[in-house]
Each structure stands twice: as structure tokens, then as C-alpha cells.
Nucleic acid binder design. Sequence first.
RNA 1: GAGGGUGUAGCUCAGUAGGUAGAGCAACGCACUUUUAAUGCGUAGGUCUUGGGUUCGAGCCCCAACACCCUCACCA
Length: 479
Amino acid sequence: MEEVSKLEQQRQEKLEKIKALGVDPYGSRMDGLELSTDIRAKYQEGVEGQKASCAGRIVLHRDIGKLIFMTLRDSSGTMQAGLSKGQLGDKWELIKLLELGDLVGVRGQLGRTKTGELTIWVEEIKVLAKALSQPPEKWHGLSDVEARYRQRYVDLWANPESMERFKKRIAIVASIRQFLSQRGFMEVETPMMQSQAGGAAAKPFITHHNALDMDLFMRIAPELYLKRLLVGGMEKVYEINRNFRNEGIDTSHNPEFTMMEIYQAYADYNIMMDLTEAMVSSLVEKYCESKTIAFGDMNIDFSTPWRRATYAELLKEHSGCDISDIAAIREKAKQLGINCVNKDDWVVINDVFEETVEESLVNPTFVIDYPAVLCPLTKRKTSDPQWAERFELFIGRMELANAYTELNDPAVQYENFKIQLRGQDETMATMDDDFITALKYGMPPAGGLGVGIDRLMMVLTGVKSIRDVVLFPLLKPNA
RNA sequence: GAGGGUGUAGCUCAGUAGGUAGAGCAACGCACUUUUAAUGCGUAGGUCUUGGGUUCGAGCCCCAACACCCUCACCA
């Protein structure tokens, strides 16, 4: 064991005293508990003198001698417990040993103090867990950013807004599932460990299976498996699960992040656009105060309909260049300081697009009809095959969603894979022959959509760091 | 990968010009039966992230390392 601080020693001594009183400092099951918010709601209905029981952590402690007030925090909020020596004389020695950070359960009669605070006047008290570590300061909470990520188990109760944010995330994901279920989508699970990492261009994590003596990749996307399910006859499927990408870490990238992918047979990217707008709007409606959400220095207006503008249109609007005028675009790229040497025209165009357009996409905007060469898994527009039926949704200058009309022609898909393989060694792209085989059995035309759930949570909760919406973001070990 | 910032008591933070380390909260002791960050009086609490260096003397200056934050780069 490591050395123990004086504060911890003092707490350890109290624990021993609790044991000496014949009380288990790590109590067991408690029945009949109610959440503090439920007790408040019940009391408002005028249930005078009713008994209630509640369990939580002591986050405030006011000792007035023969009377002690404790504020208990549970997952829903706080509840005051009042303990009087007159009523609890036989337990007073134990009660005096309880302190900030301890988990206790109380049962007693509801009432109000003369200042109007709803209070459980304690008749029974149970020690549920003695805290040996000193809790953070009661007023400021835990504000050290690193500590809040490393010790989320403290952050969640020391900073109520942190708990609220994660509860909101959980509720939003539940609402998404409900939204999709109501529309007939089935939630499925596809492999996280894959013998080849396909469906996106990203660097995968590599792991090893000992018994099979083979390397495996943590998935970078579920796409190719979900499409196999379309071939199998599942017409409306989705998956909400983790993807893993072995790339840089910053305020909008965590190495493991939650992706939702949705596929609908016989649909196209227009239907996925409508679905996205309807789903996110319903979440804003249900979980946000207004249709305008503050996000860093931005105010995002979620009012519908959201703008739908073509890639070429937006390029013209923000760079001043016509997409067919390669000379002008290369000139613009030079002005922007983009290195164009040995770069394909379309790559330069996309660099200029990212540099000039994405910066300005604050309110939800569907960027539609991408250059087909940038979209190896997307069906081309029949009216003009140089464009692909793809959209990306930008909100708050971030890419939040990516969707397309799925390419279901195995011959074209095969060629696209071959092209993609050239010069993409770092992404370890491989030919997925089995996926081509699946397409050869016939995949229905379909719309497919991917939504970055963490980023969606960022804009819906108004926080600028992905680490504030991921319970346990990746950090280096610090000891 | 580049640049900038932060690291001091359990927590939140000060620390002047390089001269014995400070406050609030928490803790400990005393008082108090309706408090709301309870209050009043008193006590104790430190490897100043780590390792070097300069100096008579370093929390402070210099070098290096580590972690975190921010910006940029990377990221279809």
C-alpha cells in the first residue's frame, strides 16, 4: 500500500470506531428507497407527515450540537436529512462519526424546517459506505480538468452539472433508439474486431488473437457489415457502438468514439437527410431550452428547414471559385498556402473546400453532391456521374454526419476499392472480397447514414470538448 | 509533430524584488436543537510535479523530463 495521508488516517480511525459500535461501515441492501426528486414531487402533492427513505452521499454537513443537518446527494438531486439528539440519542455516537463524503441511507418523517427546506427527520440511519478519501471542496467542487477526467467517479457527484450532462447524453441516446424503433429500424451488433478494417479511410488499432495466431483490427466503421445485412434481407438496420481510430487526439477526436450508422433499403440520401433533420430536431425540441444553442463563441440556430447546398455551390460561395475552373482553384489553393505539388485536381479542390467552406458552417447545413472520386462507397448521380449522392451535415463548424445513397453495383465497387488501394498504404486499405461477393448476390438500393454521437452530444449540451461528453476519455497514465 | 499555458496543503487558489510557505473550505478541539457554503473561538496540516543547474540562499531564475489544457498541424 502507498503511504496514507493524515486525513485518511483520521477517517480510518472513525471507521474503526464505527466497527467498535457494532455497525458495519460498508452496509448492505436498502429497500424502499426513493429518489430525492421523487420525494420532492410527492411532498408537493400534500402528503403531510408521510415517511420517506433516501440514500446518498453527504455533501454538506451542519452540526449545531444536538442537531445535525446533512445534505444527501443521490443521482437525481439532493435531500436534507435532519438528525436530532432527542430522537436519536442511542445512535448519537455513531451519527457524530459521520462526515462529508460518506454514503448513508435514512428513513423518517417528511417535514419542513422553519426556513421551508424539505427535510427527512431521521428515525433510522444506516452507514452504506464510509469514505476514506477527503471529498473536494463543497463550494467549488472538483475543477481541475485533469482530475475530473481521471476521477470521473468524483466529478459526477462533486460537480452536479457533469452528472446532468451525462444523464442528458444517456436520455438522448435512448430517445434516438426510440425514434428509430418507432420507424421500424432494428438495432444490430456487428464485429468490433475485424480481419480487415474497412468502411472508412482511417488508421486502425491492431490487436492479436493468440489461439488463432492472427492480427485483428479494431473496427474503424461498421459500414461494410451493416450493408451485408441489407443483402441478407434486413431492410432497416442501425448500430450505435464504438469505432476506433488510431489518430490524433484533440477537442473533437477521442480514439474510441460512438458512431451511429443507419441503413434503409429502397431509400436514398434524400430520405436520410429528412430522417437526420427530423431526428436531431426532435432531440433539440425535447432536450434543449430553445432552438438556438450556444456553442463556444457560436450560436447555433437549429430552426428548420436546414440549408441544403451543393458542394460546388458552397465552394463558389466561399472561395469564389467555379468548381470546373481548376486553374482558379489551384491559384486559390496557393493563396491559402495549401501544398498542391503532385496532388490530384480533386484533392486540391477538396483542400480548398475544407479550408474555405467548413469554417463558416455554424448552423446545421447539409453539404450535398460530393465529387464522386472522393466517395468510393457511394452511388453516382444518374444525371451527372461526376457527382456522388452524398451529404455531410455540418453543425458548429464540425462534421456531424455523413450519408449517401449506397453503391450497390459490385463491379463499380470493385473498381473503386482498387483505386482506393493505390497510394493509401497508411490507412492499410485492403480489398474486401467478401463484401464484393455479398454485393454480387444483390444489395437493394439504400440510403446510409453515419452520425458522430459524441459530437452530437457536444452541440446539444453546448460543450467544446469531446472529453466532456465521454465518461472516461483516454488519458496517458500519470504515475 | 510545432508553439503557448498550467502544475504550491485533501480541495479551490494567492505567493511581492531570489531571503524561514499563505488564505478560504475540509480536518482536529470547544460551544451551540431549525441550519442552508451554518456560526464563533482555538489547533494542526507542505518532498512547492520530478530530476539536474546557477546562487551564501530557489516555490520564484536556467536546463531537462512527465502530465494536463489551449492553438495549429494530422484526421474523407
